[in-house]
Design a protein around this nucleic acid. Structure first.
Length: 108
DNA sequence: ACCGTGACGGCGA
DNA sequence: TTCGCCGCCACGG
């Protein structure tokens, strides 16, 4: 069965793939980069990301630098996995749910 | 084609 | 500073 993707999803995944490891970006920044006026729409595309974590959706967090969600949900179970992935890539946390500002990637 | 639903974000209280 | 409300927009039913 082929995975069906919308054009919007392709744009989102392409942009997210540009985020270097050890860094993170935000739903809003990704939206702005692909010319979409809605961070929520980006979140919606990522929550159904069939390529996780090949397409590094774990490197996308909320604009307040709190984690957001992972693997379709925002429960502690998913978030701890997201945190673990980021930590393994060198992303630092100022508290269990907030990444350090220096890791932010802004799409130049 | 219309409607409800969000892994969001900014702003006022 | 935290909380709630509302605007945003792609998607599936």
């Amino acid at each position: 069965m082929s995975v069906k993707l919308t054009d919007f999803q392709r744009k989102v995944y392409a942009a997210v793939s540009l985020i270097p490891q050890g860094k993170v970006s935000t739903y809003g920044l990704v939206a702005a980069y692909i010319g979409c006026g809605s961070a929520r729409a980006v979140g919606q595309a990522l929550k159904v990301n069939p390529f996780a974590p090949v397409v590094p959706c774990h490197r996308v967090v909320r604009s307040d630098l709190r984690l957001g969600g992972f693997c379709g949900s925002a429960d502690e179970k998913a978030l701890s996995q997201k945190r673990a992935l980021l930590l393994s890539e060198g992303v630092r946390f100022v508290d269990p749910d907030t990444v350090h500002p220096d890791c932010l990637y802004t799409f130049t």
